[in-house]
Design a protein around this nucleic acid. Sequence first.
DNA 1: ACCTGAACACCGTTCAAGT
DNA 2: ACCTGAACACCGTTCAAGT
Lengths: 241, 241
Amino acid sequence: MTRPRPDADEPPAPLVWDRPPPARPRAPLSREDVVAAAIPLADAEGLAAVTVRRLAAELDARPMSVYSYARITAKEELFDLMVDQVCAEMLVADPPADWRAALRVIAVRCWEVLLRHPWWVELTGQDVLPGPNGTRHREQVLAAVAGLPLDPATRRALFVAVQAYIVGQAVFALDDGSRPRRSSGEVREAVEQFEAALIGSGEFPNLASTGTGRPASREEFESYFRRGLDWLLHGIAAAVD
Amino acid sequence: MTRPRPDADEPPAPLVWDRPPPARPRAPLSREDVVAAAIPLADAEGLAAVTVRRLAAELDARPMSVYSYARITAKEELFDLMVDQVCAEMLVADPPADWRAALRVIAVRCWEVLLRHPWWVELTGQDVLPGPNGTRHREQVLAAVAGLPLDPATRRALFVAVQAYIVGQAVFALDDGSRPRRSSGEVREAVEQFEAALIGSGEFPNLASTGTGRPASREEFESYFRRGLDWLLHGIAAAVD
DNA sequence: ACCTGAACACCGTTCAAGT
DNA sequence: ACCTGAACACCGTTCAAGT
């Protein structure tokens, strides 16, 4: 990704033939270029790796150029752009007409998208401003239940409940041992020993018999997600009819 | 909170009477002292305000003393301690015997606690290691449904669904305009105009008729929280019986 | 052994100077 | 007008030196 750049500290070669011709001034990068570099960086190395300087290196540019190319006035605006770009991935092409089926398809899509971009949840909990794709996603959720005869408050409650459930499940699913700290073998082992000692103390009979609730696998967690979603949709259906 | 400290750069006063007597070396602060200073700081000014240097100033100590007093090896361990301390607030004294009533009481308590400590959700989405109070809270949730005849997988699915719902609702409830960016009048106004323009475009008929789903008040959001919780519990009850 | 001052390698952003 | 180099005011943490 990063192209080599002649070191400015090196003295120029004595022969002109050994010196690279002056680079044609590159067309300035677009906002999309910047966001497209930031998202895989965050996916692969976490949000903390997305620094202005690192992103600039990734784009073979200078730190302050990130600001001018993306036309952001602060780093948090880059995060706004990243979050909204991911919201575009949540849009479902042809949601089914049945409201429960539609909500199920949208929710599972969100689930998949959020697992691809773990940092999204981190940012949503913070101070992100809504953008056009996030708005389209919200419209799609509301469109799924547009046919139900609900008073406005109930419709909003339904909307918030489903969205909250999805985001909450993503929070839990992401805590699966792949995060930086838990992926250190030493830490993982210490956590397991600590929990084993707590459970062995007898103070936690229910955790002892049920387990700590941390998923054994992504499949296991996806099945929890789907089952809980069905419970929620069932409860909504019972209230609506 | 911060006691005045003589400026080390000032030359000592010429008369001994004008010089403060040497401070008796203070008893070292405890880990609890550090955490008890960090939590209200995070509550009041956000997680970003919790820097090692700021916390040291708050405790009238030197930056590196924070590490030795709290016996942490990295700042993230301070966050582990803060998260676990808040988990203690989630414990309910005498949960009712009925599983739905118990889950309702615990969930509402969590809701209240999370709104008091907005940064908790931020951290949980990240890389926090579980501590003793978090374990006690999980045990309490499992104890509430201990009487239900469930296979282990269903029990875990129930547990995760309820916990996820609570955390997800907290994420939404926190996005209520009190966060730093939205509380700037200029930004708030710009966001409202931006959304009004989107809705006015006609591309979002359902958002136009239902609203953006952002809460008008905390009461409104609490009612959404309770209604969604009842839907979820109703769906669980239907599956269990 | 426990505690900490100074230094280090970062960070986001300001601002003046380039083009 | 747009872009950017250098500087500034931070940050978490290392490490050697204190007690």
